[in-house]
Nucleic acid binder design. Sequence first.
RNA 1: GCUCGAGUGGUGGAAUUGGUAGACACGCAAGACUUAAAAUCUUGUGGGCAUUAGCCCGUGCGGGUUCAAGUCCCGCCUCGAGUACCA
Length: 969
Amino acid sequence: MDYKHQEIEQKWQAKWREDKTYRVVEDQSKEKFYVLDMFPYPSGAGLHVGHPLGYIASDIYSRFKKLQGFNVLHPMGYDSFGLPAEQYAIQTGQHPAVTTEQNINRYREQLDKIGFAFDWEREIRTSDPKYYKWTQWIFKQLFNSWYDQKANKARPIESLIALFAEKGNTEVTACSCDDTPIITASEWTNFSETERENILSKYRLAYLADSWVNWCPELGTVLANDEVKDGVSERGGFPVEQKLMKQWNLRVTAYADRLLSGLDEIDFSESLKEQQRNWIGKSAGASVTFKVANRDESIEVFTTRPDTIFGVSFMVLAPEHELVDSITTTEFKDQVDEYKKLSANKSERERQANVKSVSGQFTGAYAVHPFTGGNVPIWIGDYVLAGYGTGAVMAVPAGDQRDYNFAKKFDLSIPNIFDGANLEEAANSDNSIPLTQSDFLNDLCGKEAVLKCIEEIEQKGIGRGKVNFRLRDAVFSRQRYWGEPFPIYYENGQPNLVADDKQVMLPKIDTYLPTPDGQPPLARASKQDWNIWEGDSMEFNTMPGWAGSSWYFLRYMDPNNDKQLVDKQIAEYWNQVDLYVGGAEHAVGHLLYSRFWTKFLFDIGQINFQEPFKKLINQGMILGNSAIAKCLGVKVKELTLICGTKISFDRERQVLVTKSMIDQDKLPSEQIDRMVDIRLPIDNLINEFDFDLVSFLKSARGNQFTDSVFLSETGYYLEGKLFDLNGTALNEPGKFQVFREVEKMSKRWFNVQTPDELCEKYGADTLRCYEMFLGPLEQSKPWNTKGINGVNNFLRKFWNLFHSDGQFMVSTKEATPEELKILHTAIKKVQDDLDRMSFNTVVSQLMIAVNELNEINNLSEEVLSKLVVLLSPYAPHLAEELWEALGNESSVTTAEWPKFIAANIEESSFEYPVSFNGKMRFKISLPTNMSKSEIETEVLSHEKSKHYLDGKTPKKVIVVPNRIVNVVA
RNA sequence: GCUCGAGUGGUGGAAUUGGUAGACACGCAAGACUUAAAAUCUUGUGGGCAUUAGCCCGUGCGGGUUCAAGUCCCGCCUCGAGUACCA
């Protein structure tokens, strides 16, 4: 009987569904274990081989834990709100819910084929109204909360209102916006509703504010900082600009310190924690106020080095700083305006690209040094960011390289405040040099100087010690359709929550574009299209993608609860996620926001733990192998079209070399400095000669590339023909050169490999084992199916252990010591390796066991059935089939993990490697219970020892029992 | 630039607390079966010198600690990831 994977896998997948094998219920008698995968966004491309890598690992771990007696929760769902479905909707008019549903069905089909032990009765979808009802609920709680720094937790807004009525806000220690005015109790009492709300919004954890946001015109929405990479949008790579807009914000900054210290309690990789630490960016220093000379204004700066204050020789404000206009003197007004315009026009990307070049402009104004009373010129400059600290710096060119560069460029003075430091080439970076020319700080250095200076600053009333965070409040509005609608309506311009028990549903709209006057798509819905319409208007923004994913792990515990987001007792049972598996790309987005929401839900008493994920492992990416044709390109600032029209660009741009350009001799060859990569579908490239590049380009890229010039091995390739470097047509079959590159799998690069065909050809069990066998889970690796045969062979050999002459055949005899040794070696290794998440070496060990058992005839049933249990997390279908054949009536998932008995692998002798001066020379088999001195005698009297000692007496003999013998001669 | 990883045969990788480097698999080579091929099985496979025992070299490079280093320490090189005018 052959191993027929298709039959077996279909049979068991059906049976599992029928028997609800993977249904999980709360069971207080058992210890729980919660394993979670980052749920996928159901994209149109379906699952590729990279997706299941993490799911397989977590599935194996879940099955392993279950066999060990834990009650394991291992759910799956979909992060189903998001941009691609909406972009598709814009193009086709198809409602995103329809596309999403289709994609989910495809995902489900693919997931089912791999044999995962998910409890599908707990499936959730973030776009399901029954789910986002509770996302909205959490938003309502955030809106109705403020952060009390004294209690160090979120508290109901009513408690703040009571405080205001009693004492105003002067004694309230809360996290609030920087521009919060000071009010007295009587002011508060006499405020109008609108005035009160304006104050409260400075304290609410969800608040509306005009803020500088990353506006992406191409996507028609704002993006959070973590959704912008290198100055372009993470999704799509579109340019991003800064824009001032009224947006919902979440006051994540209130949690900055707890998010930082919480990192010490959780088991995330060091690099991931480091990324979160950097993102939070805590730095301690002082805030100091500088008066503007002869004016009422003053400028507040933040500095981590207040001790260098005597080295201040100028100040720099960000060009966007609010005081720039008022302090600039008439004399410099034009130049300042010019500079402001210049930097405003620079995109985020250009600003980043110009890090090296120093630019700035003097305002004509001076500040007064708070200690010396001296005049300090005030400049504006690009290198000071509006968004960090106060958007202004006190420049200390002697101690800060950027200030130094600025001073050099504009010939500003560089007072040396470091005793004996050399400032010829660069600013001083040695913290052990004592200060000089610094009044009360002279001869101090480092921390001591900083503390002393803060003391003085506070005494003088010109500032205070301050901790600053890089972390900004998170923009929570998106000008999009396919997201959670806000439970908010507006009346007289003020936001109000809809009633507690009401949920705002996503209304129907005719098309998924913004309105002609630039309002978000939801503004298209008429009053009747909304299930709730209150006040003057509803909120037309929707929530960002991370809203639903910030708390989803809680919903799996109690997915159908329509009274609350999760039952408290159930949440207490399942508690934290014990193991979270997913990609590292969510380091500062999802993983930070869900930690934030968890802490908030803890504060308001919904759950009794503060960190969502106890342990996290990042699976590596599986990379695709791309095939690339290189198309010639030039960089030009100007281009003449055939019709004679001249086009000029603002900067050099990439242009493809086309046939007409060559015909017209418009191409100085030295200009051909760039190659444009065109990615080709790898599946069609088995025979490169047969690949029709021209028709491929037509179908995939329109006419854009059809007459472009491609590289061939000896010249160039154009419209299916080959030419040599002189442009002479060659009379041979056309072949452009194909370059290979290993990179991220992506639909648009045609390098995606789906698990489907492998499931069909080799079976899910083989695929599961193979993906694990590829190497350590956390490492990225290129996809390569070369080794899959070996793994498939292993499963066939495993099957064959149970069969002979085409019949199922196992012996009821007692297991021999030899068999037991093989089995228990495997039990120990598999168990230890799974405990440390070394999934690849488990497969190796099982292979070793199978290879060794293969040598033995008439294998005992006792050994084989335990071996089936060992294999079952990796190859559940095969294991079920054999388990059933062994006469078991219940699923192998209900079996017990075999107990390791050390006696079975104990040996009476050990083969000692004997080294001379550290070099292994020969082996000698000795009883394990032999004493050190006996071993030494045995080794030295060995005939080969005489040869290696060469007449010398050994100086020393090291004997490590059951390990090694080393003779030092 | 800074931070964090990683560098081991032709390839993916193993070596868990310093103790036989290269497990397991792929690939390759030879052989068996076959008219032949595929599939399967057997054997070999880090490099070099000898081909029989034996010897030398080998975990990115250069030092060091140790009886013993892929593993620990110091200094470099390369690659990957993240981050970037953060005051």
